[in-house]
Design a protein around this nucleic acid. Sequence first.
DNA 1: AATTCACTCAACCGCAAAGCA
DNA 2: ATGCTTTGCGGTTGAGTGAAT
Length: 262
Amino acid sequence: MVRTPCCDKSGLKKGTWTPEEDRKLIAYVTRYGCWNWRQLPRFAGLQRCGKSCRLRWMNYLRPNIKRGNYTKEEEETIIKLHASLGNRWSMIASRLPGRSDNEIKNHWHTHLKKRTKMKPKQYLQLDKELSSESSQCETFTNNRESEAESSTAADPNIDHDHQVLSHQILEASQSSSPEETTSNMNNECLSLSPSNSNNDYVPTLTAIDCLPSEDIFIGDFWTEPFVQDDTYNEYHPTYFLEGGGLILPNAYFFYDDGAIDL
DNA sequence: AATTCACTCAACCGCAAAGCA
DNA sequence: ATGCTTTGCGGTTGAGTGAAT
């Protein structure tokens, strides 16, 4: 499924990402944000190009990312949007919170394309429906807000304290402008859920993103990103387990070399 | 049991757009 | 206005996997 690891002529590693590389990337981006993808791998201790790091983060490690298990509603949305927008996967992904453009593209090619070919009439009908929608380009922020709201307020599996905390974080996130909210990848709140039943490495991450930066980063990481951080106790990200639970911030530790103890 | 084949999807590549000096 | 750097996007590739033979 994945390419054989190899190196290009400049010594950069290619192919499958190892758990260790993932850890380094998670640790670095969680701590300092993605201030410069090109420089990031050097400081994060990764033998990868920035592009590869960005792609890995955006498609696999990013908080809130959903993987597989497409709902009927999601598939219908993809089909509608594709009828209207064509292969503009990033646009389509922006209306499906938690889904990456790459995954949607793959899902389209492997499942949905065939389906639409089999039902041309229905496909055209969906296209018509979409054209008549008044708010065709509602903001991504709205989607995210409603998603976050429903995931924290409506889920009976989340205990009350966690719901309160989640709501406070959500409110804090809403105080920033939409532009800041959608563009600031640094304000993401990361969670790591346990491995699967086979104890395989499965970096499942869910979170509420768009937190105000002051809730996450201590000091000025834009200008001093590599200052040794002795203030671990002041670093209080909140970790949301898939399904709604929370893990305490003290659940893992960062090391100076970018390693992360989970 | 061995082989073939189709499918899946993580990751790569090249290009264009955006940002900046 | 220009050129360089960085980011983002869409197309494509190819190894792993499971079903079929």
